[in-house]
Design a protein around this nucleic acid. Structure first.
Length: 562
RNA sequence: GAUUGCGUAGCUCAGUCGGUAGAGCAGCGGCCUUUUAAGCCGUAGGUCCUGGGUUCAAGUCCCAGCGCAAUCACCA
């Protein structure tokens, strides 16, 4: 980067619309002083040989520290007694570290500060007598949020704090923003989401959750790969949004002048992979649904879908149970390492992980209950006794019951009465759903009113469904057609029959089991996070209204494709 | 979409019955070579979310709007 030209000096002419508080003005003044008077490049440079702060801490040696301490004291005593002091041998490891300043205590001729990186905090102690004048001035006037690079031996203070005794200090990056409160951190939920980059360093728990998320997803991939599944990537931009019944986001391809949808599910493409001959495939990727936002819904979310030729919903059940059990075990290990609450000796042999007020027991086998049995327990009548079911629906105040098909009423009564009976502390497979509410599922051969589908519930949340996939093109076409008939005007603008998919079934898709798992929800459960926003780095928020501009949502025409 | 709550300094929060806008941290100036939210002295900092209304007087009461949160609804 070239030096800033004087006439556009950023210290005096910030070209942002953000008003400059005096806090920021003073930081700009410091930036100028650090650069012009002290000779530090305010935006740093390449640094080789940096240790993560946690790794630097492990280089501390009690023996080396004690030996150096004793030698220093002896030398001092000798010097005081007038005898010649031999040179002190310093056996302490020298480390070079970088981090953001999160504590700064100026004791006059000694400065203590805490640096923070993604691995944790480490104290740096800077004695005026141990560094150059310029480094001393930099350390003394460093602001919260500045990134410093420090080198020196690692030892202890008198109070026992492991620290780097700086021999060199330089500027990694000057921070020009007012920092959050150093003790309370950033607590305002809105600010935490809008300024996640501050939240991540100010609240280390936030960064930890995302590190855990990364490990969970990585373990899922290893699990799937070890079982011989091939990871594939299918279109996010789809001409027809299929595979689920959700409202899609719409977009447009200019060169082809073609409307497109952001996918609501990858299902129909993954099945085409089976038609093409892939036996076992999975995809972990984003889905987009243009619907409401709450603690368990974000408009874009990550899902894993899995398809296994010649499997069925039982195959998928075993896979899901093993995967989630294994993930829970790994989280127990992680939590123990971190000194957090977790057990492996639950009533059924654990692992047990906390989720809010709940202690969820992931012991195998997970609970299995048939839809029909759970319905009977919850509603107090047989689900096939539609008269009784409708009476129950009216009793529950489901006033639009009359307009609905029998099985849809069954489904609503189930959600109202039966789902609450599921123990939130035990992962539970609800199996054998009514065929009528599962258009992509193969009907059960022994009982065509039912189909080979389960949903897994954990902590009261629906984490994912699995099917024995419907691969009869004629039945599939009939189900799609029927579904389209029920669509209202609005739905029909985005709901279209995917004829190519039906054609692929005519080519022939092997019998298969398929599975979908909401990764965000699973991560919520495994990391004890209450909201999906706590496991998505940059969750969608309403944009801040630019004052006085009513047309801010109109795109700047002509500025898009440059 | 509905209901409730919240919105005050950069951050975390007080603000009584409607009567001069407050604290801590951060900032600025000073002191301090062993601090652990360091401490001490001094100092500066406000569109009380926005817009109306009631009133002699509104951060406070009323109405509308915006944002966030929780609960519900929606979401096979």
């Amino acid at each position: 980067m070239a030096d800033p030209t004087p006439e556009t000096s950023p210290e005096t002419a910030p070209h942002t619309l953000i008003s400059e508080s005096e806090i920021i003005a003073s930081r700009r003044a410091k930036l100028k002083r650090f650069r012009d008077e002290l000779g530090f490049e305010p935006y740093g440079q390449r640094e080789d040989g940096l240790l993560a702060l946690a790794d630097a801490r492990t280089r501390f040696s009690e023996d080396a520290h004690a030996a150096f301490d004793a030698a220093t004291k002896a030398a001092k005593a000798a010097s005081a007694a007038g005898s010649a002091a031999g040179s002190v041998v310093d056996g302490r490891a020298v480390v070079r570290v970088a981090g953001r300043v999160v504590q700064h205590r100026d004791m006059g001729k000694l400065v203590f500060l805490f640096l923070r990186d993604a691995t944790g905090d480490l104290q740096v102690s800077i004695s005026k007598s141990a560094v150059t004048t310029n480094a001393w001035e930099l350390a003394k006037h460093a602001d919260y949020g500045d990134i410093l690079v420090v080198e020196g031996p690692i030892g202890r203070t008198n109070k026992g704090e492991v620290c780097v005794w700086a021999t060199a200090v330089s500027l990694g990056t000057k921070s020009l923003a007012a920092p959050p409160e150093k003790w309370h951190g950033l607590t305002d939920a809105e600010l935490r989401y809008r300024r996640r980059y501050v939240d991540m360093y100010a609240n280390p728990e936030t960064a930890k959750v995302f590190a855990m998320r990364a490990r969970i997803v990585s373990r899922i991939r290893r699990f799937m790969d070890a079982r011989g599944f091939l990871e594939v990537e299918t279109p996010v931009l789809q001409p027809i949004a299929g595979g689920a019944a959700a409202r899609p986001f719409t977009t447009h391809h200019n060169a082809l002048n073609m409307p497109l949808f952001m996918r609501i599910a990858p299902e129909l493409y993954l099945k085409r992979c089976l038609v093409g001959g892939m036996r076992k495939v999975y995809e972990i990727n984003r889905n987009f649904r243009n619907e409401g936002i709450d603690r368990s819904h974000n408009p874009e979310f990550t899902a894993m879908e899995v398809y296994e030729a010649f499997g069925d919903y039982g195959t998928m059940m075993e896979l899901t149970e093993s995967l989630i059990h294994e993930l829970a075990n790994s989280m127990v290990d992680e939590r123990r390492t971190a000194g957090l609450r977790a057990e492996t000796d639950g009533p059924e042999g654990g692992p047990v992980l906390p989720w809010g007020e709940l202690a969820i027991n992931y012991a195998k086998p997970f609970v299995r209950v048939k839809f029909e049995d759970l319905f009977r327990r919850g509603a107090g009548c047989e689900m096939r006794d539609f008269k009784a079911v409708r009476a129950k629906a009216r009793e529950l105040g489901l006033h639009h019951e009359a307009k609905l098909d029998d099985w849809l009423v069954v489904n609503e009564v189930f959600e109202e009465c039966a789902e609450p009976l599921i123990d939130p502390c035990r992962p539970t497979f609800v199996t054998d759903y009514p065929s009528a509410v599962s258009p992509l599922t193969r009907p059960s051969r022994s009982d065509p009113a039912l189909c080979e589908r389960w949903d897994i519930f954990i902590g009261g949340m629906e984490v994912g469904p699995a099917y024995t996939e419907l691969n009869d093109p004629d039945i599939q076409l009939a189900k799609f057609t029927e579904q389209l008939k029920g669509a209202d005007d609005e739905e029909s603008t985005f709901r279209t029959l995917d004829e190519d998919f039906v054609e692929s079934l005519r080519v022939g898709m092997p019998p298969a089991g398929g599975l979908g798992i909401g990764i965000d929800r699973l991560v919520m459960l495994l990391t004890d996070s209450a909201s999906i926003r706590d496991v998505i780095l940059f969750p969608l928020l309403k944009s801040m209204a630019p004052s006085g501009d009513e047309h801010h949502d109109a795109p700047p025409v002509g500025k898009i494709a440059t």
